[in-house]
Design a protein around this nucleic acid. Structure first.
Length: 280
DNA sequence: ATATGGCCCTGGTTGC
DNA sequence: TGCAACCAGGGCCATA
């Protein structure tokens, strides 16, 4: 499932390949509603735009667009950004037009290089849409960036909260980009039981969690993300961070630090993995 | 306002 | 072996 490191990897890959290119045509399937914006409107707005930059905000992939000006072809920043959320199984693939279109392809952008950018999503949890008014107010996502937030601001997010620390980490309005894998992994490194009430954690423990989370996310980005089920980057390549997991998807296996059996339970509506000895 | 739980969706896995 | 039930979970929505 794409979380911050996976989305970062995809965004970087798409940026390297697609930035500077013009969108010659856009086509979206009309089936159901994987859209925040009407598909016809979205296709009409995207067609003719230049992709200035592709980057990540939380779990969203953000395309900064430019409108080419007729006279000398000079571009100016467009008032729209194109936002893609991969959901659970979404893929954004940069493919030669000759490569067969995979099943469950809901969107296709034809680029000036002759390649296509394809949005493929079997489970349909992904979303696409336009963010308008971007010149005045660029898309900023629902919460704070885990990699940019200061330790003190991070600790302050949880003060007085009565929900569990795991549920708080998953809440995108507090911190965006953290999903189930990196919530479990960062809590392991910080030695915190996922069920602990967020507001009951000391400042010191929260500072430790801040450091653990940033370390885990950075390492995961370095390794191209975690491929647990079917995540792949823009070239269809899997990541390697799943090999570094300490608790996620390791129920019944020994803790790498203390050899206790890793446990799994359902908490905050998600499979939750922890070491009963290392995490208190 | 804050917190919780159900639902969407379908491929892969499990179990009879 | 074959098939059905079950499981995965991000974000949104209704509810308490």
């Amino acid at each position: 499932m794409p979380e911050l490191p996976e989305v970062e990897t995809v965004a970087q890959g798409v940026h390297e390949r697609a930035h500077g290119q013009r969108i010659l045509a856009a086509e979206f399937s009309r089936a159901r509603e994987p859209f925040k914006t009407d598909p016809d409107t979205m296709a009409a707005v995207l067609t003719g735009q230049r992709i200035a930059r592709v980057h990540r905000v939380g779990k969203h992939i953000v395309f900064d667009l430019e409108t080419p000006r007729p006279p000398k072809g000079k571009a100016e920043p467009a008032d729209h950004q194109w936002i893609v959320h991969l959901g659970m199984t979404g893929r954004l693939l940069y493919s030669a037009a000759s490569v067969p279109v995979p099943p469950h392809t809901h969107g296709r952008l034809s680029l000036s290089s002759g390649h296509e950018l394809r949005f493929v999503d079997a489970r349909r949890f992904g979303r696409m849409g336009l963010h308008s008014g971007a010149r005045a107010q660029p898309f900023s996502g629902p919460g704070s960036e885990p990699l940019h937030i200061s330790p003190e601001d991070f600790a302050a997010l949880f003060r007085g909260r009565k929900l569990s620390i795991k549920a708080a980490l998953l809440n995108q309005k507090l911190l965006h980009g953290v999903g189930n894998i990196y919530a479990d992994e960062s809590l392991y490194w910080a030695g915190i039981r996922p069920t602990r009430i967020a507001g009951s954690l000391s400042r010191e423990r929260l500072l430790k969690l801040h450091a653990a989370l940033q370390q885990v996310l950075r390492k995961a980005i370095e390794l191209g993300g975690s491929s647990v089920s079917d995540y792949v980057d823009a070239d269809g390549v899997r990541g390697f961070f799943q090999l570094e997991h300490r608790v996620y998807d390791r129920a019944g296996e020994p803790c790498r630090a203390c050899a206790a059996e890793i446990r799994k339970m359902v908490h905050a509506g998600r499979g939750t993995h922890y070491c009963p000895r290392c995490q208190r």
